[in-house]
Design a protein around this nucleic acid. Structure first.
Lengths: 256, 256
DNA sequence: GAGTGGAGTTCCACATCATGGAACTCTTCG
DNA sequence: CGAAGAGTTCCATGATGTGGAACTCCACTC
């Protein structure tokens, strides 16, 4: 890491390093943070940051820290990063829908939230409704538990929200629950998000083997009560099939 | 535009120009495209593109053309560009829901598609269902007509899909319809997407005055039939209020 | 299979352009 | 009011990026 084995690109490399540092950090970085992280002299850092800001690759927030610039925002308005995932997952989700008759969901982590990116509706009259983009605390849904268990999302700082008397709010109890879920390959909830609502979910792995999403179903607790094990295993299988698909079809790299 | 009034940043500026060109183009650009677009000598272009690729700011697709690199993708997985819009729009949408009782939707353009980014459900039993992220031809929905009318999305190349006998598939007729919608400030559809389904929508403007989204309702045609005018004007008002909010709250720049 | 042209990479002498230490300018805080 | 911190500007220096030309690698064509 002394001198890159390349030539004629010092300035560009350094500039790119600054941009990459900001984007990967995913939180505003101050001038000093950046200077330290990249190990560049003050004057160089200053000159480059100014140029990058002018070019819209970076931008300063109200407090003067650097964040990803308008070009990144523009890119995000035009590209759905989960498009491919959803496309590849659709057949699997349909099959799960046929298997169980329940509402099927695919969740990923966006920032520090769990979001639903695709859904197949229940065939029953009584079913979970438009779930997409609903913001639900991770520790209270099966999908969330999967993503938590594999470290795709982190628990929020403060108290864990108690949504029903059954919501697990004790961090230690939750840790055990998550560990178990990881061990057996699927997670479940019963009445923890809403009385009467149960969910079961399993991890989906990306091309690098890292967990990128959770595949799950949800429905009325009475209907799922006795099929937990069976559905859990089924989901786990289906999720693994999907993971196989992704391994073959996805772009080279995963998430940082 | 002869010489930028800045100094000591030629390399970075040029590199940034290459990246910006690729991101804004939003389609794979060949080496030659880039060289031409940026007016740089071959050797410089080559050296820089190699460096940018190494830094993950750019990436080459299968056919060797350049596209936005992994850093952009990473950013997109973490940030929802419509988060702010949805947050600001929520109260307005709720109000529209109360006004009309119908399903309320907020749509934007992602790439060349119209996507729903937020929804308030109908209070009626008979209502439009989970609509979010459903892919519907722009010319057959009111929301789509608004975005088409203001040039936020473009019509697809080939034949316009005929979904019902009432779908407008004649480009000239559609052009007139869109012009009228723009003139009066709202668009509507009746049985053009699905028999029995009607929709009404109005444009929402961003901080720069450009149309960035469409606010609309949809419901059974019989229920909307006679209230078209009234709801259209109401929606237009609400959308304008929302636009006012955005003007004050949104980041400096809009869309390219 | 030699011949041609287009597309992109590598080379290298040159001087332009980025470099970074130091001086300078604002703020902030004691 | 003085001192320290944070960031910008200056400028002499030479390392670094530059770009024309030569070169390589295809993909076609006759």
């Amino acid at each position: 890491m002394t001198t890159p084995p390349t030539t004629g690109t010092q300035a560009v490399d350094r500039a790119a390093l600054l941009v990459a540092t900001v984007v990967r950090a995913d939180e505003p970085l101050t001038f000093a943070d950046l200077q330290a992280a990249c190990g560049l002299p003050k004057s160089t850092t200053s000159r480059m940051l100014t140029a990058l800001e002018r070019s819209e690759l970076l931008e300063r927030n109200d407090s003067g820290s650097y964040v990803a610039g308008p070009l990144f925002w523009l890119y995000a308005t035009r590209h759905d990063p989960w498009e491919e995932l959803v496309r590849l997952a659709r057949p699997t989700m349909d099959r799960v829908g046929q298997d169980t008759g329940e509402t099927v969901n695919l969740s990923v982590c966006r920032g520090d939230r769990v979001v639903q990116v695709a859904q197949v509706d229940s065939t029953y009259l009584l079913g979970t409704r438009d779930w997409t983009a609903v913001d639900v605390p991770a520790h209270s849904s099966a999908l969330g538990k999967v993503l938590l268990g594999y470290g795709v999302v982190d628990l929020p700082k403060g108290e864990l929200e108690q949504l029903t008397p059954y919501t697990i709010t004790d961090r230690e109890a939750l840790r055990r629950e998550l560990a178990q879920a990881v061990r057996r390959g699927w997670a479940s909830t019963a009445d923890e998000l809403e009385i009467g609502l149960s969910g079961i979910a399993a991890p989906v792995r990306g091309s690098g083997g890292e967990v990128v999403a959770a595949l799950g179903i949800s429905g009325p607790s009475p209907r799922l009560q006795d099929r937990r094990e069976e559905i859990g295993r089924k989901l786990s299988d289906r999720a693994e099939q999907l993971s196989g698909l992704l391994r073959r079809n996805t772009r080279k790299e995963g998430v940082a």
